[in-house]
């Protein structure tokens, strides 16, 4: 464990909690893609299949449970909470995410570290996390609604990606065997997509602020 990875995990968790608290506080999920949140929950559920079989550390196990619980809490809020679900942009959040799930699964069947049940699902979760932001990106381009996507959410999401890349660079130079090319390549693609999301986020933000000022 290095400080970059720890800080990356913390900023990732904070970004999820910021979104959950924002939805719960405002009782609104306008502008938030349920499909992206469902993909994130699927990422954690398929990545942490080893939760009960491999014990890495207390930190590792606790964080896995927290990530699964917080991502499912957001999906539950957006699907079941009587007030929140009314503000969901159902007719705008129409990205066909099932094709993304299928493509990632097929890719995981082809590209993985070892052909075992757990490893294939681990690779699947890595690929899926990289593209999970797509429905949110499309929804943002369509709705331009950044009310619930606070600046802090975007900031911590960016910090999470940046810190993880620094963590991989650090591990590459300090550990002899650092062969996590699946996570690194997929992580770089994920960071590029996040940069695209951040670009549209700030465009929408500027547009919204301009309209407010007029």
């Amino acid at each position: 464990m290095n400080i970059f990875r720890f800080a990356g995990d913390m900023t990732h968790l904070i970004s999820i909690l910021i979104l959950l608290l924002k939805i719960y506080a405002t009782k609104s999920c306008a502008g938030i893609s349920l499909k992206t949140q469902e993909l994130y929950a699927l990422v954690f559920l398929t990545r942490y299949l080893d939760l009960f079989t491999d014990y890495v550390s207390l930190y590792n196990s606790v964080m896995k449970i927290v990530f699964i619980a917080s991502s499912l809490a957001i999906v539950w809020c957006m699907r079941r909470h009587p007030l929140v679900r009314r503000s969901y942009d159902k007719d705008l959040d129409t990205f066909r995410h099932q094709y993304v799930v299928l493509a990632c699964f097929v890719l995981a069947l082809v590209l993985h570290e070892r052909f075992t049940f757990q490893e294939v699902f681990w690779a699947f979760s890595i690929y899926l996390e990289a593209v999970a932001i797509l429905p949110q990106l499309v929804l943002l381009q369509r709705s331009g609604n950044v009310d619930n996507l606070t600046g802090q959410y975007v900031l911590f999401l960016g910090a999470y990606r940046g810190l993880y890349i620094i963590n991989w660079i650090y591990r590459y130079f300090t550990e002899d065997h650092f062969a996590r090319w699946i996570a690194c390549v997929s992580g770089l693609i994920q960071t590029a997509l996040y940069a695209d999301f951040f670009y549209y986020y700030y465009l929408s933000r500027i547009k919204q602020d301009t309209i407010m000022r007029l």
């Binding site: 995990d9 964080m63 990530f67």
Partner: peptide, 10 residues
């Protein structure tokens, strides 16, 4: 399992 097979990152 051995370290490199174990996914120690979240």
């Amino acid at each position: 399992g051995d370290i490199d097979s174990e996914h120690d990152e979240l």
